[in-house]
């Protein structure tokens, strides 16, 4: 820069038309928002996103410590073939359905519809699980939706039969 005195049109905040043509070029912004700053922001974002996975792991670890004990559902002789039995597992808020199919298989799922949480019922005639709210159908075999609005499967409850009594021994939200 020279020490020559600037004309008025070249001074800062001049209203001269030729100066205002380049008003969008702000020196402060040039210093602040540049290539280096962009890369630093990208690094910050990347590290933040990577570390954001940590709290989920910590929470998952805490939840894994809670061991699930076998939960007695009902005696098998109280659920004849082609019928179902309502219970709650793993908490009182998680309603579930035990199904004894015509073929003699035992299936159990949480029965909140994965569409809008309506209760799902066993339809013996068609051998399907039906959510009557919006006509959502689930397969009895695997709990996956077969028709209607639901997109996700019903959580599967693992069962065991010991001395004629059905026990719930675990749950799988995603399966198959």
């Amino acid at each position: 820069m020279t020490d020559k005195k600037k004309y008025k049109r070249n001074q800062k905040d001049s209203n001269d038309d030729m100066i205002n043509l380049v008003d969008n070029l702000n020196r402060d912004d040039d210093v602040k928002y540049n290539r280096r700053a962009f890369l630093k922001s990208a690094v910050g974002a990347s590290v933040a996103l990577g570390l954001a996975t940590l709290p989920f792991s910590v929470k998952a670890m805490l939840e894994s410590d809670e061991e699930e004990e076998a939960f007695k559902i009902v005696s098998l002789d109280k659920v004849p073939k082609g019928s179902s039995y309502n219970f709650a597992y793993p908490t009182e808020a998680d309603t579930a359905l035990l199904i004894h199919t015509e073929e003699g298989e035992i299936k159990a799922y949480n029965n909140k519809c994965t569409h809008l949480q309506c209760p799902v019922f066993y339809e013996k005639e068609e051998n399907v699980l039906l959510c009557p709210c919006h006509k959502g159908y689930f397969s009895v075999e695997n709990g996956h939706p077969t028709a209607g609005p639901p997109q996700r499967e019903l959580p599967l409850i693992k069962t065991e039969i010991r001395n004629g009594v059905v026990y719930a021994v675990g749950r799988k939200v995603r399966h198959g």
């Binding site: 996103l49 990577g50 954001a52 940590l54 989920f56 929470k59 998952a60 939840e63 995603r174």
Partner: peptide, 30 residues
């Protein structure tokens, strides 16, 4: 971005082992 997406999905799907895997990927990548 992908690791966080999968971590959240696995967490809400209660697939805890997958949560740990994606967390390890995310931390190493960071």
């Amino acid at each position: 971005v992908v690791a966080l997406h999968h971590t959240v999905e696995a967490y809400f799907g209660r697939e805890h082992e997958e949560v740990f895997v994606y967390t390890i990927v995310g931390v190493i990548s960071s």
